[in-house]
């Protein structure tokens, strides 16, 4: 059925567009290149530090953020964050550099945990691929230091390390840094809903707390 339907739909489309179905348009590429992308030249926030903007936007969307002076300070910052939140050792995404981690803690590897075990860990520690100041977003791609998608979904607390060199001003600037084929998640604040009388509520099914460590590097 689906093969017939495939041909039928493609024929209908071609007929509706007034073309032969075999001529599935080599002109597409040329016409695509003509699309005006004037929005790329805009830079609304050029007059302010994108670091400050990022921190402000994270706060606005209920995420916490701590500035970290150098990568060498990360272990202490992580330990302090966990202590302040009275959290036991979170799981860690595989590929997170050892030198980020505080000494003497035994961080379970997220890769080794089942979904039910993930549901019981106190949190997850990851890095990211890129972060976007204007929208307060972090973008994670499956793989090194960022875990699998479920790792940053099931635990209730997500601690994410963002290096300042990973921070860009706007959404269009983030795209060249992404690998298009990898599973990708844009995360902007903790899980939320506004389905009840348009009241924004933090935390429905995803982590209810997102804490970003922004590291000058």
């Amino acid at each position: 059925m689906t093969d017939d339907s495939r041909a039928r739909i493609l024929n209908r489309i071609a007929a509706a567009l007034g073309r032969d179905s075999s001529a599935a348009s080599s002109a597409a590429a040329a016409s695509y290149a003509q699309i005006a992308r004037d929005y790329r030249s805009a830079n609304a926030n050029s007059d302010r530090s994108i670091r400050d903007l990022f921190v402000e936007r994270l706060h606005e969307y209920d995420a916490a953020c701590t500035r970290v002076a150098t990568p060498a300070d990360l272990p202490a910052a992580i330990a302090a964050t966990l202590a302040a939140r009275r959290l036991a050792t979170p799981a860690v995404a595989s590929g997170v550099p050892r030198e980020w981690l505080p000494e003497g803690c035994d961080f379970p590897a997220a890769d080794s945990l089942s979904v039910h075990e993930l549901d019981r860990v106190p949190g997850i520690l990851t890095g990211c691929t890129v972060a976007i100041a204007e929208t307060g977003s972090i973008v994670l791609q499956s793989g090194s230091g960022q875990g699998l998608r479920r790792h940053t979904l099931i635990p209730d607390f997500h601690l994410c390390v963002v290096l300042e060199s990973q921070l860009v001003a706007s959404v269009p600037l983030a795209f060249p840094r992404l690998v298009p084929d990898l599973p990708t998640t844009f995360i902007s604040g903790p899980s939320a809903t506004a389905d009840i009388e348009m009241t924004r509520i933090r935390g429905v099914h995803g982590p209810r707390t997102l804490h970003v460590l922004l590291v000058a590097d």
Partner: peptide, 8 residues
Amino acid sequence: RMNPYNSI
């Protein structure tokens, strides 16, 4: 400005 999650 951005919804909490986009999955691709």
